[in-house]
Design a binder for these strands. Structure first.
Length: 255
RNA sequence: GGCGACGUGGCCGAGUGGCUAGGCAAGGGCCUGCAAAGCCCUGUACACCGGUUCGAGUCCGGUCGUCGCCU
């Protein structure tokens, strides 16, 4: 979500190449992100420097590091067409139609998962499939030699940090930031930024509580994906940032 | 002290005398172009005691507690 411009406080933006690059009405996608990430990383490496990829969930991180061979983007109109099909005929029929066209994809997707059923159907139109022939998502393969590090923090510490960060957002003026942002149209992806609606619609105390809950969930979600990344090195994140940095460098040198 | 209202699973919140409300959170799982998202699965709770009834969160009585008003 840090790719969006206009939300430096809410998305906790820092310096970085792919930070604040898209307007809020831009629909995000792994495909586009992957192209930009690869270009940025290659450019940095070509300049003889080290590129550091930070944050996100497993899918986006792997997309940045590996050649995922993502299936093609939807053809204009086909997504809307299949969404209408899904809504008109119902989940069961849409899923049955998918099973006729792409058995493997149908087996991987639940009928109620409208988003994925539609995506799988539109891919059959493009002669592709939701299930790639080569699955590189959770393989160790990367485009460049890479060290993947995850940071572990005890739950209680994490909780404290999340709350402190959330409260700091308000002190830094998230409310104004959000107000400004909501004056203009949002893409469906940007609308999902944690805190956007909470800040706009809830009393401050409630907004903080809700954001803390959603952020905690997100952190748990990230941790879950991290565990699936082959070769990831887990380090203790419950210490000052410079010590964490030293620990990472140590692991890198040992390699 | 009197009167009244209320007391439902971690939280919020429906509930007709007789068959699982639901939402959020939590736990588990799926997921290659919406991933700070989407989807699937998982909770037998009704303050306590007694009574009425074939059967009571749902009716009656009492106890305790919370809130409000009164003295």
């Amino acid at each position: 979500m840090q790719v969006y411009e206009g939300l430096p406080i809410l998305t906790n933006q820092g310096p970085g190449r792919l930070v604040a690059i898209w307007p809020l009405d831009h629909e995000a996608s792994v495909g586009e992100y992957q192209r930009l990430a690869h270009a940025a990383i290659d450019e940095i490496l070509a300049a003889g420097r080290l590129s550091i990829v930070v944050g996100g969930t497993g899918l986006y991180l792997r997309a940045a590091l590996a050649e995922l061979a993502l299936p093609p983007a939807p053809q204009p109109g086909t997504r809307a067409r299949w969404e209408r099909f899904y809504d008109k005929h119902g989940a069961a029929d849409a899923h049955a139609e998918l099973a006729r066209r792409d058995e493997r994809a149908a087996a991987a997707v639940h009928a109620n998962d409208r988003r994925r059923v539609v995506r799988a159907l539109e891919l059959t139109d493009a002669g592709s499939s939701l299930r790639p022939l080569v699955d590189r998502l959770w393989q160790e393969s990367t485009r460049h030699p890479s060290l993947v590090v995850g940071l572990d923090v005890p739950p209680a510490v994490l909780e404290r940090r999340i709350r402190a960060r959330t409260e700091a957002m308000f002190e830094r003026g998230v409310e104004d930031e959000v107000r400004r942002v909501l004056e203009r149209p949002l893409s469906t992806t940007a609308a999902k930024v944690i805190g956007l609606h909470e800040v706009a619609e809830l009393p401050r105390e409630e907004a903080v509580d809700r954001i803390v809950v959603r952020t905690r969930r997100y952190a748990a979600y990230q941790r879950k994906w991290m565990r699936r990344i082959p070769g990831i090195v887990m380090l203790d994140g419950d210490r000052p940032a410079d010590e964490v940095a030293d620990a990472i460098l140590e692991v890198a040198r040992a390699r």
